[in-house]
Design a protein around this nucleic acid. Sequence first.
RNA 1: CGGGGUGUGGCGCAGUCUGGUAGCGCGCUACGUUCGGGACGUAGAAGUCGGAGGUUCGAAUCCUCUCACCCCGACCA
Length: 576
Amino acid sequence: MRTSQFPLQTLKETPADAEIASHRLMLRAGLIRKLAAGLYTWLPLGLRVMRKVERIVREEMDRAGALEVLMPAVQPAELWQESGRWEQYGPELLRIKDRHQREFCFGPTHEEIITELVRNELQSYRQLPINFYQIQTKFRDEIRPRFGVMRAREFLMKDAYSFHLDQASLQETYNLMHATYSRIFSRCGLDFRAVQADSGAIGGSSSHEFHVMADSGEDVIVLSDRSDYAANIEKAEAVAPVEERSLPSEALRLVDTPDTKTIQQLVDQFNHPVEKTIKTLIVAGSAESGAPFVALLVRGDHELNLVKAEAQPEVAAPLRFALEEEIYQAIGAGPGSLGPLHLPLPCIIDRSVANIADFSAGANIDGKHYFGLNWERDLPLPRIADLRNVVEGDPSPDGKGNLTIARGIEVGHIFQLGEKYSAAMQASVLDMNGQPRTMTMGCYGIGVSRVVAAAIEQKHDEKGIIWPLSIAPFQVALLPMKMDKSHRVREAVEKLHTAMHEAGIEVLLDDRDVRPGFMFADMELIGIPHRVVVGERGLDQGQVEYRGRGESENSMIRIDQLIPFLMDRLSASEAV
RNA sequence: CGGGGUGUGGCGCAGUCUGGUAGCGCGCUACGUUCGGGACGUAGAAGUCGGAGGUUCGAAUCCUCUCACCCCGACCA
């Protein structure tokens, strides 16, 4: 390919509304252009990258025995009503009507559609297990689309759905998909981790997310320093402290704290250790709790884990924090003065809260706190649960090592759906006894367009993108110096271009009439992994210059050795 | 949804407070000089100032409505 025939729509200036590196670079390198909030056009250069990711995904899914299908993007409301999600899904579901006023949605996911297909097409257990996948455009009307294609509304996704007669078969395919995803992201040249994830309301025994490691990632993941334990912080268990709770050593006292509304003020004003403070959070109670509100207690230096909180039977789902007026009405004191003693609400405390002695908490009277509180002396021990986010240094839940915290970009998610959709939509096959059996399902997604952004987020420098070879839009940039003036350079470059082409190398020849610095800057911005410069200087010695995108020094290569040299470089990183 | 902000050639911005008929940089076109790390000169093309209505002799600028986009808010006890 020649740049004269391939628009490099690069920008020298940084677009105003791009906040993170990948978004900026995707715009500057001319990979994408925004049409509207969360909607992007992929330019030729960007599409080449996305197609490469797609191809890797497709090859590995095929290799794992999955079968490609293509389902409609627009889906009838009836199927969503059947699964119950027409009501459950909020405004994120883009609902549309056709000319007959029939309701449809633009699919954010395809469980209903594949289940509808499979219940009609499959009749026998002999046809199971089976795994269908597609690579297709999804639409989710995100509250706040941002970061370019990282969190866009319209995006390209690979989604797969497997169907099984029993859990053992599902587990087998699940494991296969786990391995397949690992191969996919390895082949994409990314530093990633598979982490245990919350399977949410869907249930099921197992769920893993695949994260590309990057400091700008929106997800917090925790890793053990001594084992392969890895989990999303939403899921990571904060294990109970092993040491016994200390015995009470202080007397209970009620203290005037008129200017103490926050934990920080309590710590500062009373020189009180933050580990001996309690945060009392009021959330809406479930029908089961029998109370309008429920109190959740975590240590002052800890954060409530929303997923864990919502999972408590006493807590209403979705989780809702009480408003200030509601707190006054229910307790008679405002936030900032709440605590477990004389609290007229059901109470659940975090494991670490159960373990402190001589602690402080609000007195449920405005402007007053208790100090020297002790469980089982001053008040009974409430129900104990794991409610908090783990923090750096906490013991790993698998008992091996301590936890470290990192950030990641979720690019893949696999989970076991069980019978949620197959039961609701009556998708069954006849088993070996001729009896109908509801199929059990697995579901496996990869955000293809997000992988492109995540790769940039992980691999870039101040000059631009540094593509992993396997997903680079071109493998080699071929840059002639003063081609217009020098017949030798022109001849040499044309010969090399042809030779590379014949060797199957994806080469981009920069035949624009621009100054060298311009070419260098553009090729670095768009991140071509290998660069070959042909100039009079080198030709005098029968040489050309080579430099890898991540390198800072040139190597001189003899012209007749260039193709083998490049082939060597290209195959070195092909191996997985 | 609540709060804040921005809409002016393809991109980045000034001009708006204090009304007088639109400007800068990048990019683009042509020619010339240059050219191994985003060159320079000369000459050009390109904007109903987001939209609608109003005030005024006159509106990018003031008023009303509206649309779009961006940022913040989902831990606070």
